[in-house]
Design a protein around this nucleic acid. Structure first.
Lengths: 143, 143
DNA sequence: ATGCAATTGCAAATCGTTTGCAATAATGGC
DNA sequence: GCCATTATTGCAAACGATTTGCAATTGCAT
């Protein structure tokens, strides 16, 4: 278990702070995000939302994700192949290991790697704005 | 300069070995790849190809890239936002630093990071099949 | 040269995502 | 609480990157 999620973000407060309206679709969507442990894509969020209110549209899911992303309330990950998958922001920074068999995402963190990345960028004359480190692998037999 | 390109791959030989036909479009496309130092996308390769033979189609560029990728002759990179960009395989493994201002790609390599990645994956019970490490940054003023 | 299968160009289809628009609903002022 | 105004919605159509079906063309072994 590398779960980092501890404090559930108060999305409604963030929305209010951003000066946007708290609508029924938004309430439902952030409700789903709040108690999500995995990294669902827009379609999956849409499915869960429709189960609550069948009138919600996929467009609204996309729009809401973009809004929340803009507020920094969620992170978007474009793992290989598939559609974007989302994760609540707020936990501390981490990278991802993707199980290529199941699509499962495992979070991990390595200060050492971060540090090396910074050294490398600096030696090339760059400041890192952000980075992407994804390991794609499969469960190994031998423990 | 972190250019690793030394030995130009003989794409035609690779195609022949793969038992596929050496057609005029393919000859032109691999010709372009052969003397390419950057990481062009399909459209850019198409443009360069059309300059040589205006009858070449974008579909053929895509088909050829997929073919070469399947042969392991080129690598495909899906950097943030944009379309896939290609690079000849054959040089030794490296990761990428993308200049978010210009789109320029700088190659780098860190055995230390690779090693740490393996340790992390292993500790999580996984074997790494492949990975993706991309640094997105901008040139820094202070040297 | 000849024939057949591989390959092409084109247009239409696909996938994930975004957008224009008219209809609807959330909020601030009363 | 009611209204007006304005943001937000659902829908369908547009989107960009890439893939595909198909009939026409081409490479290549004979």
């Amino acid at each position: 278990m590398t779960r980092t999620a501890i404090q559930k973000p108060d999305y409604e407060a963030e929305l209010r702070k951003a000066g946007v309206r708290i609508t029924r679709p938004r309430r439902i969507i952030v409700g789903i995000l709040t108690d999500t442990e995995d990294h669902p894509d827009a379609l999956e969020i849409f499915r869960r939302a429709v189960a609550i209110d069948s009138s919600i549209s996929l467009s609204t899911v996309y729009r809401t994700m973009k809004l929340l992303e803009g507020l920094g309330a969620i992170h978007r990950h474009a793992f290989e192949g598939g559609p974007s998958r989302f994760e609540q922001a707020g936990g501390d920074h981490h990278d991802h290991l993707i199980d290529i068999e199941t699509g499962d995402v495992i979070e991990f963190k390595s200060d050492r790697i971060e540090q090396l990345q910074n050294e490398i960028a600096r030696s090339l004359g760059y400041d890192i704005v952000h980075h992407r480190l994804e390991l794609y692998g499969r469960k190994c037999k031998v423990k």
